[in-house]
Nucleic acid binder design. Structure first.
Lengths: 196, 196
DNA sequence: GTTTGATTTGAACGGGTGTTCAGTTAAGTC
DNA sequence: GACTTAACTGAACACCCGTTCAAATCAAAC
């Protein structure tokens, strides 16, 4: 056989990315083979190369797509027009809500950075920096306005993001707490941590 | 040739563990081959099997050693005799100090859990739970005594640990801040986060 | 100085790796 | 219905994987 019945790039392409995403998240980039991904899709390994130039690009594209989604979703929030405290609350709730919906993407974005070749790493890292800069801006504005009490804006930014992203290590849908409750708990901790 | 001059298990054994630790931390367990580890030590791959039964055990032993060190070091602190606020400050400073000195071990312990076979995973996870339980105990004691204001002890525990461990993602020796300054900044954030 | 035991080599094992590509078949077009 | 193009197979490529083991050599003990 060669081309299979019902085959179409609009179907196979997304299925390949979905399989790669799930497998990379569960086992790690290096531990997943192209044949495993292909097997999950129900296709031979060679067929993957109609959709990606190589394994590295497959990973890099998944990461770039995730970071683009993140920045695009965040860009819809006009936090500059809000008071620092409201802007910070918005950021905390946005971060938790967005990340909780995409556990696989988040896991890959944080765990597989070292698997990226230098050029891809620089690109993804720049996008991440861009996201962090938004939180840092909010913190600086609040500190200048005297509503936040922080020792170091840069470190507070990293500490808050580390704390928030940690949600993904334990949160499971249908668990003890609803998304709203989780957001409220973390917002309480962040608000107090910045002295507001 | 066979046995090489000056070879001795007291020397080769630690060198193998050190090489594995460094390589696993930098590239990840799955991406590192036994031949790479052997090459770093200056030995053939077969020689590694005088020191470990297989690759998986090499990883598991590194992790267990790290967790044992962590728990042993922590056991020297008698936090139960301290007031909750002092106990919490001690925990925060201990965690940062201990983790900052062992970036490779910490990286492996957090990133390679998924590379562990079920039995090894359960063992390491139990040790980690043990460590987290200590912080949770401090938080519960403080909450009952009315000196902490927290919504959920379990989640606060995980949030604080995620925040503290995040130090390892950016801290570099000889950087802008001293260990003492870093500890002070994080202690400030944690103290406020728990409402004290 | 000989013997014993510890340590390493080097080759081999079976199998898996990412990637390429000629050949084949289905889908879409006129 | 003939033709083009899109999609996929299956085999092959060169190489790397973890692990084993007889043979060789060094260190230590007597």
């Amino acid at each position: 056989m060669a081309r299979t019945q019902g085959s179409h790039s609009d179907i196979t392409g997304p299925r390949i990315r979905a399989a790669a995403r799930a497998l990379f998240a569960r086992h790690g980039y290096a531990a997943v083979s192209m044949r495993q991904i292909a097997g999950e899709v129900g296709v031979q390994a060679g067929a993957l190369y109609n959709y990606t130039s190589d394994k590295q690009s497959l990973l890099a594209e998944l990461m770039r797509e995730h970071m683009d989604d993140l920045l695009a979703a965040r860009a819809e929030v006009k936090s500059g027009q809000l008071a620092p405290l409201d802007a910070l609350e918005g950021f905390v709730r946005f971060h938790i809500g967005f990340h909780i919906e995409r556990p696989d993407e988040v896991f890959i974005a944080y765990m597989e950075l070292r698997a990226l070749e230098p050029a891809n790493f620089a690109e993804i890292e720049a996008l991440r920096r861009q996201y962090e800069d938004e939180l840092e801006g909010i913190l600086r504005r609040g500190a200048e306005a005297g509503v936040f009490e922080i020792e170091d804006a840069k470190i507070t930014t990293l500490a808050v993001i580390a704390m928030l992203t940690g949600v993904n290590t334990w949160y499971r849908k249908g668990g003890r707490l609803s998304l709203e409750e989780v957001e409220a708990i973390y917002w309480g901790m962040v608000r107090r941590a910045v002295g507001a």
